[in-house]
Design a protein around this nucleic acid. Structure first.
Lengths: 245, 245
DNA sequence: TTCATTAAGTTGTCAAGACAACTTGTCAAA
DNA sequence: TTTGACAAGTTGTCTTGACAACTTAATGAA
């Protein structure tokens, strides 16, 4: 009962990769679990082991699978998967550092008309907005103000946001996956409101990051301002060069 | 006369990839030219064709080679390719802003033994180092200190650096293309030396970026510290999500 | 000359097998 | 119980061989 079509114009290893990717997506091979071994896949699909390896090679390069010699081939944990925002994500980048990070919403989600601001793409329009604070080991480290497009994120007010990655939410609830983002960095004096949350004196220099996130066909769908204390924690990111497989 | 050692712990296809990369770098296979065909490499090196393909696969993925079915495998032209470092590049990101940016070397290239510094991967070792200053519209904006691996950038002291993008140099002279990079951001007080170059008072808060650049098979090959004035110019970047197929 | 055909060469895909290197669990001995 | 040796299973590497799909250049005919 082979699912693969040997006469197809699509190479067998691409077909097998599609099957595996679909099974992973469907939860048939849960994250962290081992998938069937190469000889086993070779037998069940009636193809050679090199072809199986070509297929899993694709998924390994896409960071979907991970090979462990002598042990097996495993489904990568979603956190390590290619998440559009993880490039610049905040919760994610902190989580990887191994620090105990807690995030709480300090200003609940509401619909507002955004005032004039040349850097805020929602200026003069309505948008969802909220503010959240991340603490590392108890110390306030990052205050984040976000604005969302009301059209694309319709019904956002019915979804629990506490403690969730926003990119994960965008993916799961709205099937939106960021395409690109732009951000800039500057040193700014901390305003009084933010100073309270960050437990600083007003006027203390902080790192201010302004970020725009673009989705396919919908640029500037998310805008955020990040205010970071960098006295105890630094703001870090990892960049990977886009792969062309 | 095989150059490859079958008894080595290093896999044959890695050895062959190294040989090919070296020949490309040395100009033996010029950019745009065809390299010997797979059967030919297979014969001359006395190895199987799949092994040859494994080797060229590495270089294709590093965007060093390009396969054309029915025609051959070709050395990629350095210029028309996406610059890996442009993701995090400094001159490049400034240039895109449309501002008149000039970069000058304020501390010439030299070989030094790097002192202890937990964040500098060259600490306790020898490295190339240099310091350069970028001005936007005449105003000092960015002071950059760089450290390079002496092994990978052998002969760096014979190459004119003035006014060139370093990633372009790495690509064209050493056929090195960054794979990934990590950087962190913090607010720091400007040290006296940097203050002179940036035309600030010592102690003024500036943006300090520490960056590590990784090349295929050679992590931490470049380390740099960027000190930015952000009063008139911001430090910006664009992120693209890696595409999959 | 111009165009279509042909042949040679190249990469793309796939098979079957072999051994090496490594991991893990089992089992026996201390 | 703890330790060590062993066996089974898995991925890593490599070989030989084959045919398909495609490109290019040479060849021949109009």
């Amino acid at each position: 009962m082979s699912v693969l079509n040997a006469d197809s114009r699509v190479p067998l290893y691409h077909q097998l990769a599609d099957v595996l990717r679909e099974r992973i997506r469907a939860g048939e091979y849960p994250a962290g679990d081992r998938i069937p071994s190469e000889p086993e896949l070779s037998r069940t699909f009636g193809i050679g082991r090199p072809t199986v390896r070509q297929a899993t090679d694709l998924l390994v390069r896409q960071r979907c699978l991970e090979r462990r010699r002598g042990s097996g081939t495993f489904v990568i944990h979603p956190l390590d998967e290619i998440d559009a925002l993880s490039l610049a994500g905040t919760m994610v980048s902190f989580a990887k550092s191994g620090l105990a990070v807690t995030t709480s919403i300090v200003d609940p989600l509401k619909r507002v008309r955004v005032g004039p601001d040349p850097e805020n793409p929602f200026a003069g329009r309505e948008a969802w907005t909220l503010q959240r604070l991340s603490r590392a080991e108890g110390t306030p480290a990052l205050l984040e103000a976000l604005w969302f497009d009301v059209g694309l994120f319709a019904g956002l007010d019915g979804i629990p946001l506490e403690g969730r990655s926003l990119s994960q939410l965008a993916d799961q609830h709205f099937r939106l996956r960021a395409e690109s983002a732009g951000q800039n960095f500057r040193v700014a004096d901390c305003d009084p409101d933010s100073a309270v949350h960050l437990e600083l004196e007003a006027g203390t220099p902080i790192l201010l990051v302004k970020r725009r996130v673009h989705f396919p066909g919908a640029p500037n769908t998310v805008y955020s301002e990040l205010r970071c204390r960098t006295d105890e924690l630094v703001f870090s990111q990892t960049l990977e060069t886009p792969r062309h497989d």
